[in-house]
Amino acid sequence: MSVLHALGRQVIKTVQGIGQATIMLAQAIIGKPQPRKSFPLLIRQLYVVGVQSMLIIIISGLFIGMVLGLQGYTILVDFGAEQALGPMVALSLLRELGPVVTALLFAGRAGSALTAEIGLMRATEQLSSLEMMAVDPLRRVVAPRFWAGVISMPLLALMFNAVGIYGGFMVGVEWLGVDDGAFWSVMQASVSWQDDIMNGVIKSLVFAVVVTWIALFKGYTATPTSPGISAATTQTVVYSSLAVLGLDFILTAIMFG
């Protein structure tokens, strides 16, 4: 019985949380836009969320592309099909690894920072202080961070893809001696702009919304104490990662299934 009670409590809590998070996001992003005020805020957050995540994304992309090149080559060469290395690297990156790994890195790099920052703003009464200055913290603090996350992540994923494919090219062509022309032309023959690249971007957009949303909500509702903020930061990374991996399966099933 007590197990059922606990389960029921958990379900109610979860549904409540989703409801609160939806209300928070709706209040933050629905309303008359004020470009004069919000544009500089957006730029600032694009810097914090996007530019500062660029280095880790590019380096990770390069290494993952290189590993794909190496692993793919050793498998394909047994079948004499090393010319299929190009599409293998490109499709793995564009369809799966680009959006997913970017989202996971983004959750760890930018998501946790967003949670901690907003949690600390709550703890140091900056959010209350905004409210008392008749400035809505949802519009002022949450909204620009949300848009910055949603804009940045797909762009970061595209960079990840490009750099990763280049990494695969370096290992496959420059190092292992796959034919240069075949690498690109076989890739071009099997990669479609619409089905592979755009579907990857759509995936990335969905992940961006979910990860940024979780990060902001966890920060906004964090208990304003040191253990509270540290717990919220951990939850952001854990929940975002799980959400990304789960959604990835669903999206893949819809898009490529």
Partner: peptide, 15 residues
Amino acid sequence: RKRMSMLFQSGALFA
């Protein structure tokens, strides 16, 4: 709220 203001304990300056 524009007619009132509040000084928080921590100051709550924007960092």
